[in-house]
Computed example of a mutant assay.
Amino acid sequence: MQEDIMTESSMKVIPTNPQAEQQNEEEKSQARLDYEEGMRYLDNQDLAMAANAFHNALMGWEEEGDQHGVANASDKLGDLCVERGDYDKAFAFYDRAYEICSTDFDRYSLFTLERKKAALYLKMERHEDALDLYWDIFDEYSGNRDPKGVVETLETMATIFVSLGDKEKAADCYQMIAKTHRNFKHAEEATEYENKAAEIRQEPRA
Rank of each mutant, 00 (worst) to 15 (best):
D95A: 13
D95R: 10
R96C: 09
R96F: 04
R96H: 09
A97I: 06
A97E: 06
A97W: 06
Y98A: 09
Y98K: 08
E99Y: 02
I100T: 05
I100Y: 05
I100M: 05
C101D: 12
S102T: 04
S102C: 07
T103E: 11
D104I: 03
D104N: 03
F105L: 04
F105T: 04
F105Y: 01
D106K: 01
D106A: 03
D106Q: 02
R107F: 02
R107T: 06
R107M: 09
Y108R: 06
S109P: 04
S109Y: 00
L110D: 01
L110E: 12
T112W: 00
T112H: 06
T112L: 05
T112E: 04
E114C: 11
R115Q: 13
K117T: 15
A118S: 14
A118H: 06
A119W: 05
A119Q: 13
A119Y: 09
L120V: 14
L120P: 14
L120Q: 14
Y121V: 10
L122G: 06
K123P: 12
M124Y: 08
M124H: 08
E125D: 14
E125I: 12
R126A: 13
R126Q: 15
H127V: 05
H127D: 12
E128I: 14
D129Y: 08
A130P: 12
L131S: 06
D132Y: 11
D132M: 12
L133S: 11
L133T: 08
L133P: 13
Y134H: 07
W135I: 10
D136V: 05
D136L: 10
D136W: 02
F138C: 01
F138W: 07
D139F: 00
E140H: 06
E140T: 05
E140V: 03
S142K: 03
S142V: 00
S142E: 02
S142A: 03
G143F: 01
G143T: 01
G143K: 02
N144E: 07
N144K: 09
N144Y: 00
R145T: 01
R145W: 01
R145G: 00
R145F: 06
R145N: 09
D146R: 00
D146W: 00
P147K: 04
P147R: 07
P147Y: 01
K148I: 08
G149Y: 00
G149R: 00
G149K: 00
V150I: 12
V151D: 01
V151C: 04
E152L: 04
T153H: 01
L154T: 02
L154S: 06
E155S: 11
E155D: 12
E155M: 11
E155C: 08
E155Q: 13
E155H: 10
T156L: 07
M157Y: 05
M157L: 07
M157D: 07
M157T: 10
M157A: 02
M157W: 02
M157F: 05
A158R: 08
A158Y: 03
T159V: 13
I160V: 15
I160F: 09
F161Y: 15
F161D: 11
V162Y: 11
S163N: 14
S163L: 15
S163E: 15
S163T: 15
L164A: 11
L164K: 14
G165C: 12
D166S: 12
D166Q: 13
K167I: 03
K167M: 13
K167A: 11
K167F: 12
E168I: 11
E168P: 09
E168G: 07
K169N: 13
